[in-house]
């Protein structure tokens, strides 16, 4: 063991598939370098499991640089682990100490059923986006990009909302498993930009209806989502969404037939 390397105890949720029951299983992670990322630490554990003929711990991951939003672990009671404003793949083992016990669980929400072990099905997010998270323009036939001038302050604010990576940490962090930070960020981005105006009032209605149909909880404004969001999406988005929703529902002509499709 080289200097500074750590031995850790992992308590990991194992669940064969969506149908079966799961349980916490304890593993040892030995000789872990503090320079490893959290996922690389799991890679090491998995290599040793495979060599024993055991099934590796399954977890979602892809880009491993904090942008694809695929990694998702709930580490020691916090989505994406103890550090602010990063994803699990950006978490490095130097944030832990030798001998520590680390509890690793999947995101917990009725709308995010477990696929296997630590991976969950977040297709609910896709369905919410499909219900209205777009500007209805076809390819071609659009104006020159500089014909739409957007004040920098608006563009920047819309950008802040657009940085959401759709990882679901907000849902995982919320005591109500509410998806409002995600949904409101998506709605806000387009609601702030001129391109999003024509469908602004129908979009918010459609997306909120789909969000409700997916079985997410509601918002109690605790701010846990904002605190845990790897991209630090602001709670202000939820406020904007609420405002738009009430305006749309109570004072606007646009009507959306509620066709919220439930999860598979």
């Amino acid at each position: 063991m080289s200097t500074g390397n750590m031995n850790l105890t992992l308590k990991v949720w194992r669940q064969k598939n969506a149908q079966s029951a799961g349980k916490m299983v304890t593993y040892k992670a030995e000789n872990i370098s503090p320079d490893m990322s959290f996922l690389e630490m799991l890679d090491v554990v998995n290599e040793s499991l495979i060599l024993k003929g055991d099934e590796p711990i399954h977890f979602d991951h892809d880009c491993r640089e904090g942008i694809c939003g695929m990694c998702s672990l709930y580490i020691n009671g916090r989505p994406h682990g103890p550090k602010r404003a990063i994803t699990t793949c950006q978490l490095h083992m130097r944030s832990f100490h030798d001998g520590e016990t680390i509890t690793i669980e999947p995101w917990r929400a009725a709308a995010f059923p477990v696929v296997k072990d630590l991976a969950v099905d977040r297709s609910a997010f896709d369905r919410i986006q499909q219900s209205g998270g777009f500007v209805s323009v076809n390819t071609g036939g659009v104006p020159d990009a500089n014909e739409i001038a957007i004040p920098k302050v608006i563009a920047d604010e819309a950008f802040n909302s657009a940085t959401c990576i759709g990882c679901g940490a907000c849902v995982a962090a919320c005591k109500n498993a509410s998806a409002m930070l995600f949904v409101s960020a998506k709605i806000s981005q387009l609601a702030m930009l001129p391109q999003g105006q024509p469908e602004r009032w129908s979009r918010v209605q459609a997306m909120v209806a789909q969000m409700d149909a997916e079985g997410f909880g509601s918002c109690t404004n605790t701010g846990a989502c904002e605190a845990e969001c790897p991209k630090e999406i602001s709670l202000t988005n939820i406020s904007r969404m609420n405002n738009d929703y009430f305006s749309a529902k109570l004072f606007r002509e646009e009507h959306v037939h509620e066709h919220g499709t439930s999860g598979e």
């Binding site: 323009v137 659009v142 981005q189």
Partner: peptide, 21 residues
């Protein structure tokens, strides 16, 4: 055409203070 298309979709490209790209 790509830039036009992306802007029309609401892609938030960086802008100058005058509001242009």
């Amino acid at each position: 055409n790509i830039i036009d298309q992306c802007v029309a979709q609401g892609v938030p490209f960086a802008r100058e203070y005058g509001g242009l790209l």
